[in-house]
Amino acid sequence: MGGSDLGQRQIFLMKKENLAKRVQNFYETNKNSEHLIQYMVAILVRNALSQGTFTEQLKDLIREVYLTTEPNDTMRQYSPFFKTCFNGGEWKTIIKRLFKKESNYYAATEEARFYNNYLEKQGTLDNRREGLVYHVESIFEDASGKKHKLTLRDTDPTKDEELTANILRTLTTLTIFENTGVRKFVELISYKTPGVVIATAYNCRKEEKAAAQASLDEKDSIEASPKVSQRKIIEKQAVQNGPAKSGAGQTLLAERDPDKKQNAEITPVNEGLPETPLTECVASPTSQDTKRTRNKSTSSSKDDLSDNSNLPKPQSIKGDSKKKSTNAATLIQKPDTAYKRIGKTAEQIAKGREDKRIKREVDRLNGKKKKKKKRSSCPFWDKSS
């Protein structure tokens, strides 16, 4: 057979939609009507034993071949198998076109008409069981005497032994199937129709489709509930990436308690607050030493600050500085004016403590334990003494 010919696996295992396309592409490419007719007979055998209709999509192609193609011996030999594709007037025209006389038709097609009668019969047995999938596993002998197996899937178990055997023997009239030049389906040896229960099954393409559908559903759920999904994403990233920065950690802590935060709005710290002098902003009642140091630095750099009129004015923080805030936007938008002063202000000290507290909280969520500092031994202390 040529490289573009169809094989046993394509004819007996492919789904009907793909099989119809392959057969049509084969004929359009090769225009070999003899091979096409034998392929169609094999498909009729599969159709007779199976529960699907594999020939409906190929009737137009058969009509085209028998009505327009130059007659040959293969078309004459297997013509009874395709009688149902034509009406009464068309069938008479085909007999005249192929055989000239009707008597010649009956003499040349005796074997084909015998097997075609079995292909059209329906099963009469009442042996179908719910939940079982039936196969026909047949053994044929090739031209060299070797045995080979042919399995037809999802078959009809209601056909009796004689009917099933004669349907399978139809393949012995075909010469198109070969293996290294040796003709297959020379003689039917045996067959059986086991009913099997599918306990487990796997299909990688179905798994990929299910995963893609799951990702689409997850995306839709994120769009439907952005607050809940955003919280889950932040927590997942915090676990995967380890300790986060202060801004991300503060956002994580702010989202931990959705009941308290779901109706709260994040407002910038500078919004709605009155502008205050620099000396009032840096003042803090928490530490007397810090106040003295800050007053000295303020008085010494007062003239320098008066020249920098374009610099942004710091704003006072609403509320007590001792109160811990978990608002991410508030902490991110605090102005850093450390470069204007000598030493740290109360706000910078509070922010440093808050950053350390957030880092400890993130480490705790990530399961990281605090490293204990090793006590350095004194080089002048001799334990032995």
Rank of each mutant, 00 (worst) to 15 (best):
N18L: 05
V23E: 02
Y27I: 05
E28F: 03
T29L: 15
S33I: 11
L44D: 05
V45D: 07
V45M: 01
G52W: 01
G52K: 02
T55S: 07
E56Q: 07
E56M: 05
E64A: 11
T69M: 09
D73H: 11
R76E: 01
S79F: 02
S79D: 03
F82C: 01
I94T: 04
I94M: 07
E102C: 05
S103E: 13
Y106V: 15
Y106I: 09
T109A: 09
E111M: 04
E111V: 01
F114H: 14
F114K: 13
Y118P: 06
N127W: 02
R128T: 15
R129C: 06
G131C: 14
V133I: 13
E137N: 10
G145H: 07
K146S: 12
K147Q: 15
D154I: 03
D156N: 13
T158K: 00
L163A: 09
L168T: 09
L171S: 07
T173P: 04
T175Y: 00
E178Q: 13
G181T: 10
V182S: 10
F185P: 10
E187I: 09
E187R: 14
S190F: 07
S190H: 13
V196P: 04
Y202W: 10
N203E: 08
C204Q: 11
A210C: 00
A212P: 00
Q213K: 11
S215L: 09
S215E: 12
S221R: 07
E235Q: 05
K236G: 08
N241F: 05
K245P: 15
S246Y: 02
Q250K: 06
T251K: 06
L252K: 03
L252S: 10
L252D: 03
D257K: 03
P258G: 06
Q262W: 03
T267Y: 04
P274E: 13
C281N: 14
A283M: 10
T286C: 08
D289M: 09
T290N: 13
K291E: 11
K296Q: 11
T298V: 06
S299R: 03
D304W: 05
D304M: 08
L305H: 06
L305R: 03
N310R: 05
L311E: 04
S316G: 09
G319T: 12
S321A: 14
T330K: 03
D336Y: 08
K340D: 15
G343T: 00
T345D: 12
E347L: 12
I349K: 08
A350K: 03
R353Q: 01
R353W: 03
R353N: 07
E354M: 14
R357E: 08
I358N: 09
S376W: 01
S377L: 14
P379I: 00
F380C: 11
